[in-house]
């Protein structure tokens, strides 16, 4: 005859086990709380904003008009209306708000192209930001641009000067 006196021991054991598991789970789960910083939301907002601004800079204001963005890229690293102006106009677009401008945004413009050798090279188009450390939480937004035969000034000589080409304007955007 089997004695059922051990049943309560079993129940107790199971209860203790469950309680221990729950406690362990709770301890682990409460230490990894999702915070707004983890959720990439600021990244998403910044990326959307940057993409919008680049797309709008690439949209001519009139039919048969020309794209502002392509104009800047054609001027390469030239001081006037070149990469730096591109960066400044881009930032002006990003900072626009209905209230005070959103002033602590920074950007850096790069250009990627296929070299005459066939590899892909990336060169800065705007002058480097002295406060950029490389540790900032940046987002990268890009836009395709078609360039005519002439190589824009200030671009390394391995960019073809004999054919029209498609290049990629890359903008690093971050909050200072």
């Amino acid at each position: 005859m089997v004695n059922d006196a051990g049943q309560l021991y079993t129940m107790e054991g199971i209860a203790a086990g469950v309680i221990m598991l729950l406690t362990a789970y709770i301890v682990v789960s409460t230490t990894s709380v999702y915070t707004a910083g983890d959720t990439h939301i600021p990244d998403m907002q910044l990326e959307q904003l940057g993409s919008d601004v680049l797309a709008m800079m690439d949209t001519p204001d009139t039919n048969r008009g020309t794209s502002e963005l392509v104009g800047f890229v054609k001027n390469g690293t030239r001081v006037m209306m070149g990469g730096n102006t591109l960066r400044d106009r881009f930032l002006a677009g990003c900072k626009m708000r209905s209230g005070d401008p959103d002033d602590n945004l920074r950007a850096q413009v790069y250009l990627s192209y296929r070299t005459t050798g066939g590899s892909v090279n990336t060169t800065p188009l705007s002058s480097p930001d002295p406060e950029f450390t490389g540790r900032e939480n940046t987002v990268r937004v890009t836009r395709w641009v078609q360039l005519p035969t002439e190589k824009p000034p200030g671009i390394p000589i391995d960019m073809s000067n004999t054919r029209s080409k498609a290049v990629l304007v890359e903008v690093l955007l971050w909050r200072a």
């Binding site: 907002q45 904003l49 919008d52 601004v53």
Partner: peptide
Amino acid sequence: GYIRRVVK
């Protein structure tokens, strides 16, 4: 919650 879009 906030989003900003640049438009023409």
